[in-house]
Design a protein around this nucleic acid. Structure first.
Lengths: 249, 249
DNA sequence: GACCCGTTTTGATTCATATCAAGCACCCCG
DNA sequence: CGGGGTGCTTGATATGAATCAAAACGGGTC
């Protein structure tokens, strides 16, 4: 039995059995992240009723692939995953990394099929929300309707920001990326300065339109400048302010 | 009186007076582009009732600015405009160009304020849809609800595609840009091979993360290769297939 | 017609990052 | 314990587009 499997079983002792039994939106610790608005008791139950909890995905396993019919929107419960487009030549272009509480698959509304593939970066749990039921529910719960529009809209803005960074130098882009991750971990109550990168240097590079080599060199340079310590995927930000300054300068 | 003003008056003889009087969604030639789904007579009237038609915007005039409270979503009726983010240093990053039938301002749902500025590239007419009324209407017209999600979702996908192009060469990116414009004009019943670029070389460059000089050099190169003719902003695609091939290769 | 200002074109040079090429570290596995 | 795979690091070189610079063009104004 390999290390990952061990970890998985430790975190999720009921792996292999269904997860329905003991977790409900009513008591979910990250509900405020997925659906951050007040719902009546009745409404929460209706939301909970249409949510399926899938067995855990393992590293490299796919949640869906580009072109699959969109039947669910997913909320990430634990772990992390990446979404990527497939280029004509078969290479992948990572469009985003997702952390707990974030919604995945919203970009499928446009055509009714997912435009991207979604793959787990580590052992990952998601909640699946049936599309047809979600759309119905959106008709009767104005808050939910508004939230969906917001989530989509925010994703557009994120893409725009991400795009804008492309005109900056490699140094600035990586700094902005690290700070973005840091802020997202902090929102989840985790350390803003110490965290584990769930993705490889190559994946970061792919996402930022840089090469593995450039990412690696930049980490070395940051380390030499005393901005951070990094050992493998374990990162410790020593001077977030300076990193931030890089991003702006 | 300058040329632009003349043009405006010629196209829009009622400029200065209200436009409400004579145009309705019921009879609008591009309604299928803004809201491309079947509505009952009653529903069309309800949609039409919440739409305001503004006086024309002139070149460089703004529809809204980044940070403005989002009170309307806009449908472009004629002309064209650009949306851009303001960077910390005050420079602009163009996030998109809009043609008739396209919806503008959807990315404001996220925060309730527009993240971008929107400025007319030429004399331009828009229909303004009140946000609160649109949200109400979305509650009762499922098609409309679905369409909004679709429009947003599609915009995400467009951003992703646009982003992906960033890893390609300048030559490929400009080719993809021209073909994209061409396809959009064609959808509007206009020529796919002959059209006027509503934006400057600098604006194209800004949008594609390239410099004015590079855009200019590329146009010269395309011309030398017999791919197109271009005179000022008047463009004539001679070999779209080869241009397309560039984009893929 | 003379001048001006913004846009476009063209050329020479520079620079950031990709590419090519090794070597290293770690982990799994036999 | 040794072999092989994968991901990471480091170095040398190449290159595509930016930058700097200047000239050409067009339209608008006086």
């Amino acid at each position: 039995m390999d290390f990952l499997t061990l970890i998985r079983m430790e975190n999720h002792p009921r792996a292999g059995r269904t997860f329905e039994a003991h977790v409900h939106c009513q008591s979910c610790s990250i509900r405020k992240l997925c659906f951050p608005f007040s719902l009546g008791d009745d409404e929460i139950v209706r939301l909970d009723n249409i949510i399926k909890r899938n067995r855990p995905l393992q590293r490299h396993e796919h949640l869906f692939r580009a072109g699959d019919r969109m039947q669910h929107v997913y909320a990430l419960r634990s772990g992390s995953l990446k979404c990527y487009l497939l280029n004509a030549d078969g290479s992948e272009q990572i469009t985003g990394f997702y952390l707990p509480g974030e919604l995945i698959g919203l970009d499928g509304f446009g055509t009714g099929t997912y435009p991207t593939c979604a793959a787990a970066l580590e052992t990952t749990l998601v909640c699946a929300v049936s599309l047809t039921q979600l759309e119905e529910l959106a008709g009767t719960i104005p808050h939910l309707r508004k939230h969906l529009l917001r989530a989509l809209s925010r994703e557009i803005h994120d893409e725009q920001e991400h795009f804008t960074h492309n005109r900056e130098t490699a140094e600035q882009r990586l700094a902005a990326f690290l700070l973005n991750l840091s802020a997202r971990y902090a929102r989840r109550g985790l350390s803003a300065t110490d965290f584990i990168l769930p993705m490889s240097r190559g994946e970061i590079g792919n996402y930022l339109s840089l090469t593995t080599e450039t990412i690696s060199r930049l980490f070395t340079r940051y380390r030499q400048q005393g901005l951070l310590n990094i050992d493998g995927r374990e990162i410790h930000l020593l001077n977030p302010a300076a990193l931030c300054h890089l991003g702006v300068a």
